[in-house]
């Protein structure tokens, strides 16, 4: 694992843009869970493949993704 993302689930509006932007295709909208606004927030389906490229964080309109990289 080279990177890790933390999603602010309450702030996420489930717009799907990070899912489209992820070059590793490891993000998806949570199929069952929703936040208090009723949005399906984003989750990592294969966290071990994350490279920490920050593409998801750059394109997130609501600034709800924080990316950590392994040093």
């Amino acid at each position: 694992m080279k990177g890790k993302i933390i999603v602010n689930e309450e702030r996420c509006k489930g717009c799907d843009l990070c899912v489209a932007a992820c070059p590793m295709h490891i993000l998806e909208l949570s199929p069952l869970n929703v936040n208090s606004k009723g949005y399906h927030f984003v989750v990592q389906k294969a966290p071990e493949s994350c490279t920490g490229c920050t593409a998801c964080a750059i394109c997130c309109p609501d600034a709800c993704i924080t990316v950590y990289r392994e040093r």
């Binding site: 702030r11 509006k13 799907d16 843009l17 394109c59 997130c60 309109p61 609501d62």
Partner: peptide, 13 residues
């Protein structure tokens, strides 16, 4: 503050 924009709005970016 959580933004009031619709999901996926370019304003946030």
């Amino acid at each position: 503050t959580p933004m009031h924009y619709c999901p996926g709005c370019s304003h946030g970016v």
